[in-house]
């Protein structure tokens, strides 16, 4: 028995040296994965492919189908790993005890900036201006709650997605919250949704990711490296819980003003800024600038303050839940 155990220990080390993927589950617990769910993984390179191809201006995502370019990139981008990874193994709950539990430093990312205006309302209200305002308000609120906050930008400056992720990693943030405003079709559509990193199985989500990934600056080679990180990333479960906490807080607060606000839910999509950050990371589409009523509300400081309060509340709820889990109470 000892010899076999020792041989397996050596084999495990050789796998580490050669960079083989971790064995997902031992055979008696391994679940067969329906072919359809494996296809979901391919959506990562698909979405990133969209981003890499670049999209001039900022068109709204197509309502039902992905752009034709998708099929071109699908064949080229997936790594060998993408085809063999057991998605169920990736989504197994992670013991919070193994993860970074104390949330002290929050990285707040105001989407877009500088030449990258983001989306805009029919009246010319720009996403970059609003996300910065909401992020600054959120910063002020969570600093008062005792968190240390690092902003990826504090003025109307162009900051690449890569620079944002590098800053977040370099400053050792405990969580990363990226603030954006959505643009949806038809114009009457609206709602709040929060994303964390994962394979999307919806062309619509891929398209939204592609828009936010614009000007990522990553090469295909960089992308493959980043994708490799996804498969070893145990922080996804943390990110999902952070996304859930923020989404719940946003819906709860906004529905006090607008009971009909649509809850578009917590979703997975391959946003570059989420791939490249090393900590639990989410991207919140806190409102919808393509909707005229929402755009009117966003003009008022009071509404932006409400959104900031909701974000702060969600972050605090997540941090509190983490502490509770960490202390085992």
């Amino acid at each position: 028995m000892k010899a076999r155990i020792l041989s397996d220990a050596v084999g495990d080390n050789v796998d580490t040296i050669t960079g083989a993927l971790p064995k997902p589950l031992r055979h008696e617990h391994r679940r067969r994965v329906p072919r359809g769910s494996r296809l979901g993984l391919l959506a990562i390179p698909v979405g990133i492919g969209i981003a890499l191809l670049g999209m001039p201006g900022r068109p709204l995502p197509p309502p039902t189908t992905a752009p034709p370019a998708v099929s071109i990139v699908t064949g080229a981008a997936p790594t060998a790993a993408a085809a063999t990874v057991d998605r169920h193994a990736l989504s197994r709950p992670v013991d919070p005890g193994v993860l970074e539990l104390g949330v002290r430093r929050v990285i707040l990312d105001a989407g877009h900036g500088g030449d990258n205006h983001g989306t805009a309302s029919a009246t010319g209200l720009q996403e970059k201006t609003l996300t910065l305002d909401i992020a600054l308000r959120t910063r002020d609120l969570i600093v008062m709650k005792g968190f240390d906050v690092v902003m990826t930008r504090t003025e109307d400056a162009a900051v690449s997605l890569q620079e944002r992720a590098t800053l977040a990693n370099g400053r050792h943030g405990d969580i990363f919250v990226s603030i954006h405003l959505n643009a949806l079709r038809p114009a009457a559509a609206r709602g709040i949704e929060t994303y964390y990193l994962g394979p999307s199985d919806s062309p619509e989500h891929d398209a939204i990711a592609a828009v936010e990934n614009e000007e990522s600056g990553y090469s295909l080679s960089d992308m493959r490296t980043l994708l490799d990180k996804i498969y070893a990333d145990a922080r996804r479960d943390e990110s999902r819980r952070l996304a859930t906490a923020v989404q719940q807080a946003l819906i709860h607060r906004v529905r006090q003003i607008d009971p009909d606000m649509a809850n578009r839910g917590v979703k997975m999509a391959p946003f570059v800024v989420l791939i490249a950050t090393d900590m639990p990371a989410i991207l919140a589409e806190v409102s919808c600038l393509s909707n005229a009523d929402e755009a009117d509300r966003l003009k008022t400081p009071g509404y932006r303050q409400t959104l900031a309060e909701a974000l702060a509340s969600g972050i605090q709820a997540f941090a509190g839940a983490e502490r509770t889990q960490a202390s085992g109470s």
């Binding site: 028995m1 589950l25 005890g97 202390s327």
Partner: peptide, 15 residues
């Protein structure tokens, strides 16, 4: 369990 432990056989806590 008489074999090299898999991740299912192990846990870590930071407590």
């Amino acid at each position: 369990k008489g074999r090299y432990p898999t991740e299912d056989d192990q846990r870590s806590l930071t407590i």
